[in-house]
């Protein structure tokens, strides 16, 4: 377990170094340097030189690289191209994305758990309906389901706000519902397969022949062994939900990390984008460590 956590943290560091190095490479090979932005065109060459010396631009590339890495890892990012401090923007936007992620996972579970337990009998109409729901909801690209839900719930029915954070909690309902519906299909597939597998094991046969209904048997003997698998799937989809929030936050105009990334890509702001990616990498690293711990604790095989 300890060894696993150490390896995970190391690989997290590798990806942070990769991301920051790409940002550095990009900014050091692009034309010109910050002296061209900060000083006016009429500055004398002496002024420019002294500025460059003070800003460390005259140092060797290697030295600048390490200085850059040091400031990157201490969270001391520069200003973005549009001129606001990157660190503040990230600190403000992080809670929005995290809340969106947790809320969508809860909604996905609320959809997936009941649907998987009631649709276990293979030939039943219910099973086919749930399988069809899984295929259809997985076919929807996130932006499409988000647009359609705005059209239906905000424009036509006027139940929820279409954009922004102004109305507090209810402005999270449509965004999380869109994410939740799309990701529930993955949970349904995995959980159903596992529950059916358990039902066809000796324990399942025993429970069924003792007179339990399929749903009862799945609930009583299937739930416990399904937990490690569910933890793994939740961990993995939390990572990709964080990616999907880039789309959802843009459609619903939520000020989160995802919409910050889109903004950085549209403005071609490598530093801003790199900083946001670094924060996302740290979050996903933490998620995968937590889910691995849950898996090991809940699975007797991994409890050594």
């Amino acid at each position: 377990m300890k060894r696993y956590i150490v390896i995970r943290i190391l690989s997290l560091l590798i990806s942070l170094v990769l991301v920051s190095s790409v940002v550095f490479l990009f900014s050091s090979f692009s034309e010109g340097d910050s002296s061209a932005y900060i000083l006016s065109e009429s500055s004398s060459s002496e002024n420019i030189e002294s500025y460059r010396e003070n800003a460390g631009l005259e140092d060797s590339t290697i030295k600048r690289y390490f200085a850059f890495l040091a400031s990157f890892f201490s969270g001391d990012f520069d200003e973005s191209i549009s001129g606001y401090p990157i660190k503040d923007a990230i600190v403000q936007r992080l809670p929005v994305s995290l809340f969106l992620m947790f809320f969508s996972i809860i909604i996905a579970l609320l959809i997936a758990l009941p649907l998987s337990y009631i649709s276990l009998r293979q030939t039943s109409l219910r099973s086919k309906a749930v399988a069809a729901f899984a295929v259809i909801s997985a076919s929807f690209p996130l932006f499409l389901i988000a647009m359609l839900s705005v059209l239906l719930f905000s424009v036509k029915l006027q139940l929820f706000p279409a954009a922004g954070l102004a109305s507090g909690f209810s402005s999270f309902i449509l965004p999380s519902l869109s994410l939740g519906v799309v990701y529930s299909s993955l949970f349904i597939r995995v959980l159903r397969r596992k529950l059916r597998e358990i039902l066809s094991s000796p324990a399942g046969f025993y429970a069924l022949s003792a007179g339990m209904s399929m749903e009862e048997a799945a609930f009583v003997i299937g739930t416990r062994p399904a937990i490690p698998l569910l933890a793994a799937v939740i961990g993995e989809s939390a990572v990709s939900i964080l990616g999907g929030s880039a789309i959802i936050e843009t459609v619903f105009a939520l000020p989160g990390l995802g919409s910050l990334l889109v903004k950085a890509a549209l403005e071609r702001d490598a530093m801003l984008s790199g900083a946001a990616v670094a924060v996302i990498v740290i979050i996903t690293g933490a998620i995968s460590i937590i889910s691995e711990i849950v898996i090991r604790v809940s699975d007797p095989k991994g409890r050594k």
Binding site: S11, L12, S15, V19, V22, V23, F26, V239, S240, L242, G243, G244, A246, I247, L261, V262, A264, A265, E267, R268, D269, A270, L272, S273, G274, V277, I280, V281, T284, G285, S288
Partner: peptide
């Protein structure tokens, strides 16, 4: 693997 694919694509596009 810890970078979601859309995030990676947005990062590459920013660069």
């Amino acid at each position: 693997k810890s970078i979601p694919s859309i995030v990676l694509a947005l990062f590459v596009s920013a660069i």
